[in-house]
Design a protein around this nucleic acid. Structure first.
Length: 262
DNA sequence: ATGACTGACGATGTCAGA
């Protein structure tokens, strides 16, 4: 069994107690982090290494930053998009593990859909898909992370009111759907085909208390790998802990050996 | 409601997040 988790922690240093507590409770083999907000030299590595996790980092000061913590061997770590697009923003890291290519992505928020930043978001999503399809030519791929986009009406608290706003704009939904049209399976919807499901709740206005959320975080797997997925959950109770991230962790269990045999 | 809350930077405010 291989357990893979993904979590936008909104600053790994600010969230260190929660991350340590959650790691011990959930016990993932691999944890993909987004928005670590710290340069590599200042990453709190000891908290992970003391629990048996090795780290692969791609961080920067104050913004963005992704990391992979793993207690199983990783191979062939890559950083950034193949084209180098937005390379000054640390948003993408991937590795091979247990015979799978695992991708950890932090898609740009994009700001208001009227801004240039929004076009960069769409471009990032397109290039992410094309890189993932290239990876899928040589084996199973699991794309995880904060896509900053909700795919459908069951993935936001008020689809009519939010339509066209950041995270639920038709152009974002179209690019998210292109992953599914290309053969990637949305693991949450494999287990829960219908019904409201969220992974993010706004800090403001009691978003979590009122359960006004959006499903912005995803795990997308190539077909054979999705078939091997035995369980998937969004750990939403973590959003109710003290000083939480605004995102909850995702956890997927795969019926494949954690050690690569080749 | 161009609102709210949180974090980083590095300063007593501004930017970004989504």
């Amino acid at each position: 069994m291989l357990r893979v988790a993904s979590w936008n922690v909104n600053s790994v240093r600010s969230r260190l107690d929660s991350v340590a507590r959650w790691l011990e409770a959930a016990s993932p083999d691999i944890l993909l982090l987004q928005e670590t907000k710290v340069e590599d030299g200042l990453f709190p590595a000891g908290e992970f290494e003391s629990r048996g996790y090795r780290l692969e980092l791609s961080g920067q000061k104050a913004l963005n930053g992704v990391a992979i913590a793993s207690r199983v061997p990783l191979y062939d770590v890559r950083r950034g998009l193949a084209s180098g697009f937005l390379d000054d923003q640390k948003r993408l890291i991937s590795c091979r593990c247990a015979g799978i290519r695992i991708v950890d992505a932090y898609v740009p928020n994009g700001g208001d859909p009227s801004l240039d930043r929004f076009l960069h978001k769409l471009e990032f999503m397109e290039q992410l898909l094309s890189d993932c399809l290239e990876m899928a030519r040589s084996g199973p791929v699991l794309v995880c992370g904060d896509f900053n986009a909700a795919p459908g009406p069951d993935d936001v608290y008020d689809p009519e009111a939010l339509d066209g706003s950041i995270g639920y704009h038709p152009e974002e939904r179209r690019r998210l759907r292109s992953f599914l049209d290309s053969g990637f399976v949305d693991l949450l919807r494999r287990f829960v085909p219908r019904g409201k499901a969220y992974s993010w709740w706004d800090y403001r206005s009691g978003g979590f208390r009122k359960d006004r959320g959006m499903r912005l975080d995803h795990m997308l797997a190539t077909a054979g790998l999705a078939e091997a997925c035995r369980d998937f959950r969004i750990d939403r109770e973590v959003r109710g802990w003290d000083r939480p991230s605004d995102h909850a962790p995702l956890v997927a269990d795969f019926d494949i050996p954690a050690q690569e045999t080749e």
